[in-house]
C-alpha cells in the first residue's frame, strides 16, 4: 500500500481513522462542547468516504448525499448548541458528569 498510487483504499483508511478519532473523543472526553466537536469529526469522516467512493465510482449521487449531510449537520449544530445554552442557563456547567438527574 505504501508508495502505491493513491486509490480508494487510502481515502477510506483516512476516513476510518478520522471516524475512530471522533468516536474516541465522544467516549473519552467529558466536556459537552468537545463531545459535540467530535461528533462533527465523525460526520466529516463519513463525508470523506462518500466523496471518495463517488469519485472513484464515477457517480455523482454520493456528492449530492454529502451536500444533504452538510445541510442537516448545520441544522443539528444550531439546535444542539441552543440546547446547550438553554441547559447552561439552568445549570452552569458543560461537564457531562454534572448532569446526572436522569441517571438511575
Amino acid at each position: 500500500m505504501t508508495g502505491a498510487h493513491v486509490g480508494l483504499e487510502q481515502y477510506l483508511v483516512v476516513s476510518a481513522l478520522l471516524f475512530s478519532l471522533g468516536l474516541l473523543g465522544v467516549i473519552a472526553r467529558r466536556n459537552l462542547l468537545v463531545i459535540y466537536m467530535s461528533l462533527e469529526l465523525m460526520l466529516n469522516a463519513a463525508n470523506l468516504a462518500l466523496v471518495a467512493c463517488s469519485s472513484f465510482h464515477h457517480n455523482l449521487a454520493g456528492q449530492v448525499l454529502v451536500f444533504f449531510i452538510i445541510t442537516v449537520a448545520a441544522a443539528e449544530v444550531a439546535v444542539g448548541l441552543a440546547l446547550i445554552v438553554a441547559l447552561y442557563r439552568l445549570r452552569p456547567t458543560t461537564h457531562v458528569e454534572d448532569l446526572t438527574s436522569l441517571k438511575l
Partner: peptide, 13 residues
C-alpha cells in the same frame, strides 16, 4: 491526510 489526522487528534486529545 496527515494534516487532517493530526489536527483531528489535537481536537480530541
Amino acid at each position: 491526510a496527515a494534516l487532517t489526522l493530526l489536527c483531528g487528534f489535537l481536537v480530541v486529545a
